[in-house]
Each structure stands twice: as structure tokens, then as C-alpha cells.
Amino acid sequence: MTTVKKQSTKTVLSARKLTKVYHTGAIDVWALRGVDFDLYANEMVVLLGASGSGKSTLLNILGGLDVPTEGKVIYADHDISHANDKALTRFRRDHVGFVFQFYNLIPSLTALENVALVTEITPDALDPAKALDLVGLTERMNHFPAQLSGGEQQRIAIARAIAKQPDILLCDEPTGALDMQTGIMVLQAIENINQELGTTTAVITHNAVVGQMADRIIYLSDGQIAGIDVNQQRLPASQLEW
């Protein structure tokens, strides 16, 4: 099955001339060198690049985890690139969902509670059970992380990320720690969220295959955008193979 979707032109987030320099000791590491980037409403973008290409740095800046050395990030007419810590916290809390390579679940909370952790602090959140339902884990909702497989843990992390109904879902190597089969289940869950809820989604990966399920593939290399591919047809995650 292939999906054809009309490309939205409404910009959710846009970055201009993003530069990030890490000063480590005597040397300066240029992680980003003037990146221009837009994220459109409802789309799914895959950021592809080798290790050190700057993709994680870009994602961190877009998600309000880090601030650029130079350049701007505009979200809903606000420049968040120079916002203070409080404003960034607010931004992450209300608008961004994160999924990490290593799940980062709270070991002392059950699956349901891990999701509720976020819904308790956001207005208009989904019911935690509903969020778990979206990732197909209703039956496991009372299990603790230690009682779940890696794939299940990652799906809970996805449920946790989307339960607040974020405007943007940012996933940093969500399948990096998983085998192919489990990885595909996780990607299906992300695909599902993007399509069912229309959540703008950006996925970082070094696995080129994952790009096939995106609306756009952005190639990063040496801190710069090396190219953008637009998929006319997205491949369903279930059909990916690596």
C-alpha cells in the first residue's frame, strides 16, 4: 500500500541561518553551518546523515533543548532561538513531543503512568489509555519498563510523546537500539500518529531506508543541508526492509 498526500504549505517551524559552534577546549567544532530549514504542517520529515553531520544538533535546537550560536528558529511568530530557559521549557511542554534512541522511560512508573506523567502537566492532553491504544499497547499498560521489551518500551515512549497532542513530534534515532522487526513496529506507530493525528513529525536516522516512509528526506552533511528529496509516494513502514 502506498499513500499519496497533498503537501501542506503551512510552516510550523522554520529555521534560518542556523549555526552552532561547540567550544571544546582549544578547538571549535562547527556542528551547524548556516542551515535554513522549514517544517510544514502534518508532514513527516526524515533527517538523514552520518554520525557528526549535525542532525542531532539541529533536532535539539528545533526542539528547544539547545540554542543556536547564530540564526533564528521561528515557531508561531516567536523566535525561540534566544528564548530563556523558562520559555524553552514552556515550548517543550506545550508543543513538542520527543522520542529518544534509549526510550528514557521512568523505571519506577508503569507504562500508563509514564504517559500520565506528561498528560498531568499539559492542557488538552489525550487520555493516557487512548495514547497507549494508538501504539497498540493497551494490554501492557500496567507493566513497569523492566517488564517490557525494547520495542514495547519505545512505543510507550511514543505514546508518551504524543499524548500531549504536540504540534511537532521529534524522534532521535527511534529505532537505533532495536532490531529490524521491532524497529518497523516502532516506525509503524510513528507513521500511525502522523497520519491519524496529523502530527508534524521529524525523524533522525542514519538508516537511509527509513527515508522512504517520509514526505521529505533532508540530507545533512558536515553541518549543512546537502540536499532535499521529496517523495511523491510514501512507502508504508510495514514495507520497509534493511
Partner: peptide, 9 residues
């Protein structure tokens, strides 16, 4: 993780 999820200090 909590901080990233939007929890304040």
C-alpha cells in the same frame, strides 16, 4: 528526561 518532556526546574 523530565526536563526534556517539559517539566520545569
Amino acid at each position: 528526561t523530565l526536563r526534556v518532556l517539559g517539566f520545569t526546574h
